[in-house]
Design a protein around this nucleic acid. Structure first.
Lengths: 335, 335
DNA sequence: GGTAGGTGTACAATCGTTTGCACAATATTT
DNA sequence: AAATATTGTGCAAACGATTGTACACCTACC
């Protein structure tokens, strides 16, 4: 029972008016008579008429699609971010096309290409960890399509972005540890090439020196289970060993906690641990992880807000609009 | 620098042929001369021509969109499922429109309505927990749009579906506990109205009776932290108390473990616990959770496969195609 | 009563692509 | 040499909605 979809023509035929009259009546054009408008509206309602979106898109030369590229949907942070972005986009009549780069820069470039060809009207991208080449992004801008970075950005490009305040988060977390009385605070950092990692490290370093502490120890890790564990083992071997460790993210923190437990030390007492992100595992691990919450949902939402603004304002809105959202220390059991 | 997108007309003009010739040359129409084809292909390549997708969709009266409704993207299971479905769809040139019902039947109905109006070509739905009314789904079928249920289904509707074998998973998990020597195995079930919960319960019951055990204790819980905890406390008060608990899902299992620890009992020794789903928390909680893995990625992929088949075959493919994917017991520390 | 202005509606073009049909040119058959 | 088949290309319509322009009718004013 595939019922034929109602078109303007159907309404026009039934009312003995032209298609253009129906179209204008529905869009409340001032030159259409009141009685005609009423008749058209009534019939449109009765037949449950909806303009054919494919025809409208074609006519307007707009896809009403927004492309989103993230590293991996199955990470809670990104699925939250997407949810924020998608909800707002959908409220403005846009569909969202979600693509996953799997932290692979090459795939990212291919996805960008594909999205541009599919005529998305805007792009929201959380770039892969290793991505440093600006060329694909410059290409997007040159094609006239608005672009907003979220969570991660390429510095020096003047591209709008919404990121969380990594510096402030790490600074606050480190200060918290200092207020707790720790003198020897170590940092399991992320990769040296990732800007987020750099900011977090700097927050740590500055908090340490602000309070005149002398102990400072940083070990870089890519995210990789064994590396984080090796690094933590290394920290435990040092004498005197650190009283607290600020970790690059919750997964690193989890690994650190495992190693500490293996060494029969008590996390939260012998050694304090703070993570970063507030992934669900923070609440489910034992002891529960004290961590720096990144407002994933709000980040996605605000990045989309900027994108929608740019879409509305057209080309004049090329100036950079960036936001840095504050993080929040969530105190649980590990510190 | 918004460069005007290349159209067939541009190519036709440059080569002094008609638009239709260009169109046919590109689609390798047999009546177009070899030399003409070569010239057209060369220029199309050079100009990086891509057919305007909005025009093609409009012409074909196809949106190339597939709607997916899930309860909540931020649950790992669903983001995995989506990933499987999306990858396959994208390989076949379809976009996927992802919508979240938040386990709300009313919102689900509204989303279905909206997706139908947006002219999606097919629908893949993981229904909300409480959904029982078949009407919206019958409406989808009557509109001629293929529909596949995934993860959850409404029984007796003859609608294609891909679900995991809840019965077998629960049966195997219970048998495993029995082989471990447990005689008193309790079950923290989900809601009595949810079919998945019914199947899991039945698997538990049948395994118990197959092995001639007499102890059987079932407590129903909606998923809700306090309810699961109350239920677990109740189990601990019973004398003799159960030696093992099969939980409706990993979250219930986590709550159960918390309560057991509060009571100074050792999980995995005094009481064995098995969860369901294999969410990430299973690996991160302490002790690590033994659980029944549901193949989320494969479920999404296979549901999409059925949907794509129906899309390809058109209306003749109305018969039901259903799959039940086996689960797998992942043995960790709690049992 | 003629013109100006306002009101209500229809016609036709447009967006980019696809496709049935027509027609011309060439090749093949009788 | 004439009839027929084959090959290569162009014309035009179609999809559904929008919109500039034309036109008919009515009212009001001088």
């Amino acid at each position: 029972m595939v019922s034929h979809a109602i078109t303007l023509k159907d309404i026009a035929k039934q009312l003995n008016v032209s298609v253009s009259t129906v179209s204008r009546a529905l869009s409340n054009h001032p030159r259409i008579g009141l009685k005609t408008k009423e008749r058209v509206l009534a019939l449109a309602e009765k037949l449950n008429f909806r303009p054919n979106p494919m025809a409208v898109n074609f006519k307007n030369n707009k896809s009403r699609n927004i492309g989103i590229i993230i590293p991996e949907l199955a990470k809670h942070f990104y699925s939250q971010l997407i949810t924020g972005a998608e909800q707002l986009a959908s409220r403005h009549g846009y569909n969202v096309v979600i693509c996953q780069s799997n932290e692979n820069t090459h795939k990212e470039t291919i996805l960008i290409e594909a999205l541009l060809h599919s005529r998305v009207e805007g792009l929201l991208i959380c770039i892969a960890n290793e991505t440093i080449d600006a060329a694909p992004f410059v290409k997007i801008l040159n094609s006239g399509i608005p672009l907003v970075f979220c969570d991660r950005e390429i510095a020096g490009l003047n591209i709008s972005s919404v990121i969380s305040n990594d510096y402030q988060g790490a600074f606050a977390a480190t200060e918290y540890l200092i207020h707790k009385g720790c003198k020897r605070i170590a940092h399991l950092a992320g990769s040296e090439n990732v800007v987020n990692s750099q900011y977090r490290k700097q927050g740590y370093v500055d908090a340490i020196s602000k309070h005149g502490l002398t102990y400072q120890k940083i070990i870089y890790t890519q995210y990789d289970k064994s590396q984080a564990q090796v690094a933590m083992r290394q920290l435990l071997l040092a004498t005197p060993r650190p009283e607290a460790v600020l970790c690059y993210n919750d997964y690193v923190a989890f690994d650190a906690v495992e190693i500490i437990k293996e060494n029969e030390l008590e996390v939260g007492k012998d050694i304090l641990i703070i993570g970063f992100a507030d992934e669900p595992i923070a609440q489910y691990m034992t002891p529960k992880l004290t961590t720096v919450l990144q407002p994933a949902f709000a980040m996605g939402e605000q990045a989309m807000e900027i994108l929608l603004l740019k879409l509305k304002e057209g080309n004049k809105a090329r100036e950079q609009m960036s936001k840095i959202l504050d993080t929040q220390l969530v105190i649980r059991e590990t510190a």
